[in-house]
Amino acid sequence: KSAVKALFDYKAQREDELTFTKSAIIQNVEKQDGGWWRGDYGGKKQLWFPSNYVEEMI
Rank of each mutant, 00 (worst) to 15 (best):
E15M: 09
S23E: 14
K1Y: 12
Q13Y: 06
G34M: 06
W36L: 04
Q46M: 07
N28Y: 06
V54Y: 00
D33Y: 09
K44L: 13
W37D: 05
M57P: 08
G43W: 05
E55T: 14
F8L: 11
G39E: 02
V29F: 01
S51K: 11
K31V: 08
V29S: 01
A12I: 02
A12K: 04
P50R: 01
E17K: 00
A3L: 12
D16T: 10
G43R: 06
M57F: 14
P50T: 02
R14T: 12
D9Q: 06
I58A: 14
E56I: 10
R38L: 09
V4Q: 04
E15T: 11
A12V: 01
L7A: 06
D9H: 07
V4D: 03
E56R: 04
R14N: 14
S51D: 04
K1C: 14
L47C: 15
N52Y: 10
Y10D: 01
T21Y: 12
Y53G: 03
Q13C: 14
Q46W: 05
F8W: 10
G35T: 08
G43A: 10
G34C: 10
Q27P: 03
Q32F: 15
K1A: 13
L47D: 04
V4E: 04
F8E: 09
N28D: 05
F20L: 05
V54L: 02
R38I: 09
L18E: 02
D40V: 00
V4M: 12
A12Q: 08
I58R: 12
G35N: 08
I25P: 00
Y10N: 02
E30I: 15
K22S: 10
G39C: 04
L7D: 05
D33Q: 12
D33S: 13
F8N: 09
E30L: 15
D9I: 03
W37H: 02
W37P: 01
R38N: 05
Y53C: 15
G42K: 08
W37Y: 04
S51R: 09
D33I: 10
K22L: 07
K45I: 15
Q13D: 08
E55L: 08
E17T: 03
A6E: 04
K1I: 13
S2D: 12
K22H: 08
K5D: 03
D16Q: 08
E55Y: 09
K45M: 13
K44C: 12
Y41G: 01
Q27G: 08
I58V: 14
W48V: 04
G35D: 09
R38D: 01
G43F: 05
T21F: 13
V29P: 00
S23G: 15
Y10P: 00
G35V: 08
D16G: 10
Q13H: 09
Y10K: 01
D40L: 00
K22P: 04
K11F: 14
E15L: 11
Y53H: 10
F49I: 01
Y53R: 08
A3E: 14
G43L: 07
L18P: 00
F49M: 01
T19S: 15
G34H: 08
K31M: 11
N52Q: 11
T19M: 03
G35P: 11
G43T: 09
D40Q: 01
L18F: 02
N52W: 13
K45Q: 13
W48S: 05
Y10V: 02
E17W: 00
E55A: 10
F49Q: 00
W37C: 04
F8Y: 14
D33W: 09
S2T: 15
K11S: 12
A6L: 03
N52D: 12
S2L: 15
Q32T: 14
S23D: 15
G34S: 08
Q46N: 11
E30A: 12
E56M: 08
E17V: 03
S23P: 02
I25Q: 04
A3F: 14
A12D: 02
I26G: 00
Q46Y: 09
K22G: 07
E17I: 01
Q27D: 11
E55N: 06
S2P: 14
W48K: 10
Q27M: 13
K44F: 13
K1H: 12
N52I: 11
T19V: 03
W36P: 01
R38C: 06
S2M: 13
K22W: 06
Q13V: 10
V4T: 05
E55C: 12
V29E: 02
K45N: 09
M57I: 15
L18D: 02
D16Y: 08
F8V: 10
G34W: 05
F20G: 02
D40G: 01
Y10E: 02
L18Q: 00
L7E: 04
K11T: 15
M57G: 08
I58T: 15
L18H: 07
Y53F: 12
Q27V: 15
W36M: 09
Y41M: 06
G34A: 07
Y41L: 09
V29K: 00
I58M: 13
G35R: 08
S2Y: 14
S51M: 11
Y53E: 02
Q13F: 07
K22N: 07
E55I: 13
K5C: 14
A3R: 11
F8S: 09
G39P: 01
Q32Y: 15
Q46D: 08
E55W: 07
Q13E: 10
K31C: 07
Q13I: 10
I26L: 06
G42E: 10
L47V: 04
G43C: 10
V4H: 08
Y41Q: 04
K45T: 15
G35C: 12
K44M: 14
E15R: 09
K5E: 06
N28S: 05
W36K: 04
Q46R: 09
Y10F: 07
R14M: 08
F8P: 03
A12G: 10
G35E: 12
D33N: 11
E17P: 00
T21A: 11
L18M: 07
F8R: 15
Q13M: 10
D33L: 11
D33C: 13
A3G: 08
S23K: 08
A3W: 13
D16M: 07
V54G: 03
K1E: 11
K44T: 06
K1G: 14
W48N: 05
E30W: 14
W48C: 06
K31S: 06
N28A: 06
N52F: 10
D16H: 08
R14F: 09
V54H: 01
E15Q: 11
T19F: 03
D16F: 08
F8M: 13
